[in-house]
Design a protein around this nucleic acid. Sequence first.
RNA 1: GCGCCCGUAGCUCAGUGGAUAGAGCGCCAGGUUGCGGACCUGGAGGUCGUGGGUUCGAGUCCCGCCGGGCGCGCCA
Length: 570
Amino acid sequence: MTPEAMPSLRSQVRDAVEAAWQIARTELTPADGAPAAEPVTIERPADAARGDFASATALRLAKPYRRAPLQLAQAIAAHVVTTATDPNSPIASVEVAPPGFLNIRLSDGVLAAATGRILADPATWGRVTVAKPERINVEFVSANPTGPLHIGNARGAFTGDLLCRVLSAAGHTVTREYYFNDFGSQVKNLGASVLAIRQGCDLPEDGYRGDYVYEMEKEMPAAVLTEAEQPGEEPSWTVGRWASEQVRSGIEASLEHLGCHFDVWRSESTLHKDGWVAKAIERLKAAGDVYEEDGAVVFRSTKFGDDKDRVILRSTGDSAPTYFAADIGYLVEKFSRGYQRIVFIWGEDHHGYVARVKAAAESLGFDRDQVQMILTAWVRFVRDGKEISMSKRSGDFITLDELLGEIGVDAARWFFASRAPSSGIDFDIELAKKQSAENPVYYVQYAHARIASILRKAEESGMKLPAAGDPRLTELLAGVLPGAPEALLARQIVRLPEIVEDAAAEEETLGITAYATDLATTFHAFYRDARVIDADEPDRSAARLALIAATKITLANALGLLGITAPEQM
RNA sequence: GCGCCCGUAGCUCAGUGGAUAGAGCGCCAGGUUGCGGACCUGGAGGUCGUGGGUUCGAGUCCCGCCGGGCGCGCCA
């Protein structure tokens, strides 16, 4: 399989400081209470001139250990192993700065080694392995197949896709899942709408009237109509099922076009047919968490923190299960596939459902934290200062395909990747079109293409990089790293794994877009300050070529995490 | 009314309780006898909605208020 992911340099530094602290603490006693479980933290200093990493550990430990922070910092620093005593240490130096910070500098050796490793194994560069890899199911989009995806679905699609990419890169095993409803009355309405057009009648009051409905009517095979006219089921259902499958496969095509691939497409009707809903209700009953009221069967979700209990079997009609009952059945079905964690990407208008679904998970015997909801804030789509309403029934909406025709997939991906899911967005279509040309994504892609161009030029002039794994490579790099342009670029490149760690932990991709932009900026400055191709300085040229080749891989992998292309030229 | 989310530069947005609050866009002033000028350098621009509190330290945590969004179905 894939070679082992390299731990971030930050975690290596943390381990080194942690080891030093463990020695230093034997000379100290805590004042009272237990010391912090994770006393050593490592961060990036606000000012890069202070060093590669910083730690405020001594400041935090000062009180529990009743020591002056400065004194504690010195005690820790004294025990940190640096290259002075061990040439293999990643740390070149540790300095103590008032009021008690540790400022840490990486060694050229570890930078050279990391750069060499990037060239030797580009595919796994940036991948990390979290402490506890999990099997995770992520369900997103899940728009009902009654109409094409509109721009309101964009955020869920990108947020879910980005999350899956990041979780995978951090070592989790991820299944991407789409749930769609082919059981509710909307499907019948869709069918009735198609039939009404065919028969020249007025559309039903709550029918669908978008252009796509008329197109489906034209394309409907005769066989569908023949089947619909058979005795038994109402024709609207038969036609509706056919129509919704047309819509569903159109949705799938749109999503693939966006780079959002789904592993599993699951329909509500199969959950009922395969008995998962019934099974779930039995389990809730067995747990003693249901009761009957006014002829309905109710789940006692308040026992697990919900505001009110929820009906799962209706009192009306044929005691049909509610939509929520199907959700619970789905939960049972998903857990039966062995996932440790089940994630839902929902619009924030669904936040009221969080408590009941978590309650169901708990009643079923799972940990409520195994079920996780990520809520995306509302996107207000605006054109000329007016909000665009989005209604499938009225047919008044802008499809996702139309939007992406105007601003491009890479620009749209970057737009959503660089915003926290929880922040509300005003998306002005006209502004977005104008700004898409100035989207920072092109700045990053340009850096990548520029490097590709230099590498092509180098090859034409017969210059070659030392082969990956050649010890001469590390030697050449170490020779050049004391130089300022090289030192800055190398330090920026090697951060990728820690950026991925943070993105996976925070389940956001903001940090990746910021990092990619920083790396591009650092490269452009390097380009300005350091001539790469120089026949008079073959060793230096080779080392610089190696550095920019590693930069190119890092840019491509960072963009890849966002599902964005890294062009060789533009 | 109750609950959840949000309020940071002109605009769009960052900012795991740590050092002088940042980026992009926009605006102003500059930069190339050389590997891609879709680039680079510098500048202006902030009562972090507001009032208290917690502590060595608060944009960040707690409480109140103001403003905006969303939700409170035997719909899906």
